[in-house]
Amino acid sequence: MSSSDGAFSRWRHSEGAQGLILVSPTFLYALLLLAAPLATIVAISFWTQDYLVMIREFTLANYIRAWTEPLFQTLMLRSVVIAVIVTAATVLLAFPIAYYVSFNVRPERKALWIFLITIPFWTSYLLRVFLWKVILGYNGVLNSGLLGLGLIDEPLTFILYNANAVVITLAHAWAPFAILPIFVALEKIDRALLEAGQDLGESRFTTFLRVTLPLAMPGVVAATLIVFIPTIGDYVTPKLVGGPDGAMISNMIQLQFMKLNNGPLGAALAISGMIIVTAISLIFLWLNRRYLKVRQ
């Protein structure tokens, strides 16, 4: 008895046990409210809904529908294409600004610039999306401004209620999430390396290509994933500015769960979406590691 007590008390005072005890409340919460619900979603995606009753028999029917029906294929493909375009636009637009703040702004002003960049994103997300509708609309700010200046003769219609509007709005919504990781990566670069590059006869441009850019890649990779993953699942933007041709997979998932009362199909769509996101992210990481030798 005393020996097992001793072993237990030794274990209880070990570093590993103390860490586990300390992390356990948060871990239990995540287990109960994240892992268990996710497991449930996986389970019901293999069941069927018969009006109000859930039939708990294993079937792949939901997945077959999710992957073969043209409507779902279109929505899924559009979600992926929009997310890819949004990610590319956001990261490409964000890089120069992160570079500017890291390399051209005086150190004591950097915090102010980062603050300036993040402020617009603490207004209500819903309202920001809605305001893009105001800007891009038929009688919107952009059209009335361009008409007033005499640059166009009639309002532009290709900028609202379609995929373009979704891309513009999301590229705006995710800007700081792209700028901040790139900025952090650029800040970590030892400035002496750049001087060394130039001392060894490289031009400013080749130094950028051969020293700065490779060292900034971890930040760019992080920014890409941070923007890409949630963008596919965005609900508000396609609903408000997307119109019928800009709807994405989340709108269908919500419809299945709430209006059509077909949870299993909604779950299968959600999981299919997650699988696609994960697969694309892994391929992206693998390509980076393979060809650019980026280490996470």
């Binding site: 619900p37 996710l38 979603i41 941070i226 993953i229 949630p230 699942g233 979406g273």
Partner: peptide, 28 residues
Amino acid sequence: YRFPAKGGIMGLIMLPLVLPEIIVAVAL
């Protein structure tokens, strides 16, 4: 602290950062 399965445990706790919110909402 270093503790067993630290990566997995912290990974699960931090997972909502990279999970689309609609998935969390629907699952709950």
